[in-house]
Amino acid sequence: MSAGSTARARPLAGRKPFLTAAGAPLTREIAILDEFGERRGIHIPAERPLTVYVDKRELVTLMTLGASPELLVLGYLLNQRLIASADEIDAITVDWEVEAAAVQTRGGIGDIDARTARRIVTTGCGQGTVFGDLLTALDAVRLPGAQAARIRQGTLHGLLEVVRQQNSIHRKAGSVHGCALFRGAEMLMFIEDVGRHNAIDTIAGWMALNGVEGADKVFYTTGRLTSEMVMKSAQMGVPIIVSRNGVTAMGYDMASKLGMTLFGRASNRHFLCYTGFERFDAEPEPQRAPVRVVAGG
Rank of each mutant, 00 (worst) to 15 (best):
M1R: 06
T6V: 12
R10L: 13
R10Q: 13
A13F: 14
G14H: 07
F18E: 10
A24Q: 02
E29M: 13
A31C: 06
A31Y: 09
F36M: 14
I44L: 15
P45G: 05
P49C: 14
D55T: 07
K56P: 06
E58W: 05
P69A: 08
V73E: 01
Y76A: 00
Q80A: 10
S85P: 02
D87G: 05
I89K: 00
V94K: 04
D95N: 15
E97F: 12
V98K: 13
A101D: 05
A101R: 04
D111S: 12
I112L: 14
T116V: 04
R118N: 02
G124S: 10
Q127N: 11
Q127I: 07
F131N: 03
F131K: 06
L135D: 04
L138K: 05
L143Y: 07
A146I: 04
L156N: 02
V162N: 06
V163L: 11
R171E: 14
K172Y: 10
V176G: 03
L181R: 03
F182K: 01
L188C: 00
M189C: 11
D193M: 09
H197A: 11
A199N: 10
D201T: 03
G205W: 09
V212N: 09
T221W: 07
T222W: 00
E228W: 05
S233M: 15
I240S: 02
I241F: 10
S243T: 03
G246I: 08
M250G: 03
A255Y: 02
M260F: 08
M260A: 08
L262F: 01
F263V: 07
A266Y: 05
R269I: 12
L272G: 02
G276F: 01
D281R: 03
R288V: 12
R288Y: 07
V293E: 11
